[in-house]
Design a protein around this nucleic acid. Structure first.
Lengths: 194, 194
DNA sequence: TTCTAAATATGATGCAGATCATAAAGTGCT
DNA sequence: AGCACTTTATGATCTGCATCATATTTAGAA
């Protein structure tokens, strides 16, 4: 689904500032959110206040469908990472798009499949693998998204929040992986070398 | 999608015996599998041989679409739990069903959303929560599927394989939850009381 | 350039859950 | 009823990562 198409259809664009919360756990879903610009993170927060990053969504992507489609309250927070322009599409309008926009339902199916794939991979890691293995897995996953020679712009804290580890553990782990040449660093940043 | 409808359309039913492996990690996906009868489990296995149960599928359900749809090799094993009758639908036929069967694409979207929901929940648990909390979460999740007064027919080993814990830890955890009356047992089995 | 906050670094200690070992109940089969 | 196999049980020890404390380095703002 092209964002411009939605705007042409008359859907309104809303502005959200960094750190704004779009929805939080327990809320009943009413919209699907299409990102025109900016970035959001979807996180669950434990009783002790520890964040776990369920996903990051950027311009051109949408989020919030699963809870809406199965009609269950949200499990996660969705928080604005960078000032964003977002289109809220109501449940009825969303169902309308699925019915009437050719190819849209297939696009949703593929998007959901991709996310499911990522979560299956991470579940296996969290259930069975040790810190360094987990780290190497997400790092390689993230590296696949950047060009050869470019660096990952994630902090150790973010890696921690994606793997369920602690910053200190991530810092030590990244060091160790680097010394074993399983990953490569340039001025403190992880880079893709091939 | 009704299984009978598939049979009427001429799709062949294959028989699989307990413990047969339908596919394993690394294989390129070619089919979507519809279960006419029986049960399969989808598991990932760590280097040290530890199983993690990604999902269990029963009569009327289908599995194997995500990898096929995003055209990536399987991450998991799918193994027959109980002798089964299964219909293999090729990629082209599957796309055909999505295009032509009214309501089928919506059904897939909902199914994928539900699985995503479960995986998000488990990721949060594995990333942030301690053994007993994890246990209580899947137990309650599983109890929602059975009637009041009925018991869960899962072994401690299966609970371990769903939570990434060890049998001994599950046994101790279940004992502890039971003594705190957070769950209720009848003759060694967890029962739903309300 | 200087100040401040965020990110990275590193050592010391503690603890939940893994691991190992061994036994007691169940459960199904003949 | 007897046997083999699976599941549950329980204690003892070990260990990876969390936790706590305290620097040091880097980045962004004034």
């Amino acid at each position: 689904m092209d964002i411009q198409k939605l705007i042409d259809k008359g859907f309104a664009v809303k502005t959200f500032k960094k750190d704004a919360i779009i929805y939080e756990p327990g809320m009943q879903p009413r919209y699907v959110y299409f990102i025109k610009s900016g970035e959001v993170r979807m996180v669950t927060i434990s009783d002790e206040g520890k964040e776990f990053i369920q996903g990051v969504f950027k311009a051109g992507q949408y989020f919030g469908e699963p809870a809406l489609l199965i009609d269950r309250p949200y499990l996660a927070f969705t928080i604005i990472n960078k000032d964003s322009h977002i289109i809220q599409v109501s449940k009825d309008d969303f169902f309308g798009l699925i019915e009437n926009e050719p190819g849209f339902s297939m696009s949703i199916i593929k998007t959901l499949s991709k996310r499911l794939f990522y979560k299956s991979m991470m579940l296996e890691e969290l259930a069975n693998e040790k810190a360094e293995h987990r780290l190497l897995t997400i790092i390689n996953y993230l590296l696949a998204e950047v060009k050869v020679g470019e660096q990952l712009k994630v902090t150790r804290q973010e890696l921690a929040d994606m793997t369920g580890l602690r910053v200190e553990t991530v810092i030590r782990g990244v060091k160790s992986l680097s010394s074993k040449e399983e990953i490569f660093m340039v001025r403190g940043k992880i880079v893709r070398v091939k």
